[in-house]
Design a binder for these strands. Sequence first.
DNA 1: ATATTTAATATTGTCGACAATTATACTTAA
DNA 2: TTAAGTATAATTGTCGACAATATTAAATAT
Lengths: 234, 234
Amino acid sequence: MFLQNPTTQAAVTTADKVFEQLQHAIVEGDMAAGSKISEPGLAKHYQISRSTLREALNRLEKCHLIERKANVGSRVVDCTIEGLLELYITREALEGMACRQAALNMTDEEIAYMQDMLTQHAGDKALQDGVAYYQEKGDLDFHYKVILGSHNQQLINLICGQLYHLVRMYRCQFGMNSPRASRAFDEHSRIIQAIADRDGELAEMLMRRHIAASRKNIENKIALQEAAQKSEEI
Amino acid sequence: MFLQNPTTQAAVTTADKVFEQLQHAIVEGDMAAGSKISEPGLAKHYQISRSTLREALNRLEKCHLIERKANVGSRVVDCTIEGLLELYITREALEGMACRQAALNMTDEEIAYMQDMLTQHAGDKALQDGVAYYQEKGDLDFHYKVILGSHNQQLINLICGQLYHLVRMYRCQFGMNSPRASRAFDEHSRIIQAIADRDGELAEMLMRRHIAASRKNIENKIALQEAAQKSEEI
DNA sequence: ATATTTAATATTGTCGACAATTATACTTAA
DNA sequence: TTAAGTATAATTGTCGACAATATTAAATAT
């Protein structure tokens, strides 16, 4: 399965291709979070010159997957709990507003399509009790559709082009692939209803609560993990 | 006067210096919005190689001041009314949340400092009726302090590192240097009060209204400009 | 004369090498 | 033995040249 970012173009240049490969490697943890990046090493590994590698690194920096310091080098961002909380607070602000704008700006066709999508997900959910599908793909599909529905290019670029790479990274690294299946489904359902009613205020509020709930759920999971880890040490 | 972005580091590399120069040139309209960028031309103009110019261009792209298409080249972003509205809606979401977080996270010292700053601005305002100072510097200082006060690195990077370059660009290009002096001052005052009271909800609401009012003010000005332009044509 | 194809030109993408800076290892002194 | 300083090695920043792609101009056909 391949969760395609809806804002990414087809890669034409080799720097683009290497960028995508590195992106996956970082998001999925094949390149350890916080680890240093060796330009000569990576260039050799991908059989490209340092120039094109640096071009790819620049794009990774744009979506905040690596950090660069002048005359020192690049590091993969590290996943801290504080960083995760900051990320979700930012999502709450941006996606909340995107949802409000979606309620104002989505076409009737787009809304109908989203409702169909949700119905289909409901079917999937009933059929396969291995709910994994809905969480991963369904959840992201839903959020992407809402964001695109805002028809606000600024919001779309910020959320899809930058924030969501980090979101996926955290999901992978912290093993948060299957959260709150049925709850999330109901929440999605209510959000779509608010959008269909063209109630921007309610849509924003519901989206913010949805993301806040997701954040709290993850906080709990991490707290449990840490507790387990601690008892193991003893 | 030189409105320094509080997140920018001292430029050490030549690419950094060229980046800053280009940044100013774009923001202040010395490089026309929407105009094409010639890599060979600019490199020659700044007496640097194309490699380091491209490094600088990458940073400009990071703060959304230019746009690149593969195998085609870069253009300075153009300032459209739609773009301006999108920008302010995004600001409303991000700075609103930043203000809420500032109410939760600012230290008492930081709050006291902001209150002092506002008092001083009040003095300036009374003294020099050329209110230009307060609008430009005072307004940005205030917003920067609130954003930094959120203590949320994600929000700080997004707003100061990316959004505000565009904000300043629009202000310059549309000649919006002196908006709503006294009104803005009162609004700032109330926002600081809410932060001092640690009332995150109110602080967010007030900041959102403050930015929305600013947006509407600009919309009006543009509408007037267009009307004047139209009557001139006839 | 207009539209389409083809050739020429200019621009961007990629490469390898050198210069400047930083990190490492070693030597020397306290 | 530890600390500071120095010399070496490695890494990043910058450069100019070549290859691939896109844009423009000319030529041909309709």
